[in-house]
């Protein structure tokens, strides 16, 4: 399993951002206790899934699909959201993370750093991990300052 500090300093923070932004883009907000509960469950899931992958030597890649499914389940059952909002929020959040991972890869290649070096150093891992959240932060800013949501952008009206 990975160092537990990664869970507290990286995964929980990312999970909080992911859940908040995913739901905010659908015009939904969770109460702080529920938000922390969902983020906590998801952050812990990341740590467990990655740990299992490491232990059994499974190549990373498909863990993203498993984590997307888990995120949907936590938002649906702990966050008590409708299933369509839960699906939308989890897909949105994970898509932004995927785009962010491309950005991180771009930065690492530009700086000519080896991935092995980053992954072996706890604090470098955490630092570069947060660069994955660049698009989440961007969407958070759009939502906060310009009230941007998919509901407004796509004119999703009443039944």
């Amino acid at each position: 399993m990975e160092d537990i500090k990664i869970l507290f300093f990286y995964y929980l923070g990312e999970a909080l951002l992911l859940v908040f932004v995913g739901l905010a883009l659908f015009g939904r907000r969770l109460s702080w206790p529920r938000l922390l509960a969902v983020s906590g469950a998801y952050g812990f899931s990341i740590w467990v899934v990655r740990g299992v992958y490491k232990i059994y030597g499974i190549p990373f890649g498909s863990h993203t699909l498993i984590l997307t499914l888990l995120l949907f389940l936590w938002i649906k059952f702990i966050g008590k959201m409708d299933w369509d909002i839960a699906v939308g929020a989890s897909l949105t959040g994970m898509t932004l993370i995927l785009l962010g991972s491309w950005f991180t890869d771009f930065i690492v290649n530009k700086l000519n750093i080896k991935w092995r070096l980053i992954l072996d150093n706890l604090w470098l891992h955490i630092l570069f991990g947060y660069t994955e959240n660049i698009f989440l932060i961007l969407m958070l800013a759009l939502n906060k300052f310009f009230n941007f949501t998919f509901v407004k952008a796509f004119n999703i009206g009443a039944d």
């Binding site: 909002i85 796509f154 039944d159």
Partner: peptide, 16 residues
Amino acid sequence: MINKRQILFLNLIQLQ
């Protein structure tokens, strides 16, 4: 009240 059909439609696009 958000239109569920339109959310579903949006979800389909997001999945893709």
